[in-house]
């Protein structure tokens, strides 16, 4: 397969085929809700929509998001080569209606019409020692991005201090404030520590974890479980109609911080959690969820 086509296919899969672990989590949420409630019928509609999008190869959601690419490549591979191919693939995928034109110039207000623009798509590129190229893609919806937020601890209104308990308080606050607006039930990526930029980066990288995949350190893993349980007690529910599932999962990670700062970045992913991975090895392409 031509590499440009391979990237178009990656975009198509991400936009039209919800990862099975996310679909399974939605099915479990559906089972949990009581018969006859709006929450149950929302989840039923979502699951029907997921199936339909996959079968007909159409975007599950009309907001096909911002295109965020994470590339890991060996030394010697030329970045600009891949960037050019991906930009070309994004334009083709837009033409084929796998993507909605979502790149708008903030100064002129003009939509570029093909998802290509300044920092669009966005690339996180790193080098590694393996002889394969790993491409990870997130399609991140605008509605859920708008409810993402960053707190600076201590945070006086909640008496949230510079410890894990303070982190817990601000996360509950963020999900309460989001209500159903991020297209609940959502998934949270939490980045603790780092600076303004890196805390958000860490929070978004959590979205490459599988549903139910706990942090390797017990303290953090327990913290994730506790948060998931408590957030689901808020009864915000699917679409904010009330119900037992407000979040599908919570993924937390941390990094060292400057002594003077303590940031908590909270990224919210809508139920239409669109991520796909592609591995390029000796010119051969393989896709993963």
């Amino acid at each position: 397969m031509d590499l440009t086509e391979a990237f178009v296919e990656l975009l198509r899969r991400a936009s039209t085929d919800l990862p099975p672990d996310v679909e399974q989590a939605l099915k479990e949420a559906y089972e949990r809700e009581d018969e006859g409630t709006p929450a149950k019928s929302v989840l039923r509609t979502i699951l029907t929509n997921v199936k339909l999008a996959r079968e007909n190869s159409v975007p599950m959601c009309q907001d096909t998001g911002s295109l965020i690419f994470y590339l890991d490549m060996p030394e010697g591979e030329k970045e600009s080569y891949y960037k050019d191919i991906i930009r070309k693939a994004a334009a083709i995928a837009t033409e084929k209606q796998y993507l909605r034109p979502n790149a708008v110039d903030p100064i002129t207000g003009k939509n570029s019409g093909n998802n290509v623009g300044k920092n669009a798509p966005f690339f996180h590129i790193s080098r590694w020692d393996k002889d394969i190229i790993r491409v990870r893609l997130l399609l991140k919806g605008g509605g859920s991005e708008n409810v993402g937020t960053q707190y600076k601890l201590p945070y006086a209104p909640l008496k949230a201090g510079r410890d894990l308990e303070g982190v817990r308080k601000v996360i509950i606050d963020a999900v309460y404030k989001a209500q159903g607006l991020g297209c609940a039930p959502g998934t949270l990526g939490i980045g603790i520590g780092g600076d303004r930029t890196t805390s958000y980066m860490l929070s978004k990288e959590q979205f490459f974890r599988k549903m139910g995949e706990r942090h390797p350190e017990k303290v953090i893993a327990d913290f994730e479980m506790r948060l998931k349980d408590e957030l689901n007690q808020l009864n915000i529910g699917p679409m904010g109609f009330g119900g037992k599932t407000t979040v599908l999962d919570v993924f937390v990670d941390y990094q060292h911080r400057h002594p003077a700062t303590f940031y908590v970045a909270i990224s919210y992913n809508c139920w239409a959690f669109r991520r796909k991975t592609m591995i390029i090895k000796n010119g051969e392409v393989t896709y993963y969820d």
Binding site: V42, T45, I46, T48, N49, L52, A53, N56, V58, P59, M60, C61, Q62, D63, G141, G143, G180, C183, M239, F241, C270, W271, A272
Partner: peptide
Amino acid sequence: FHAIGGAGALIAK
């Protein structure tokens, strides 16, 4: 009226 956010494929039908 609240529609189901994200259910773009189904609604288009």
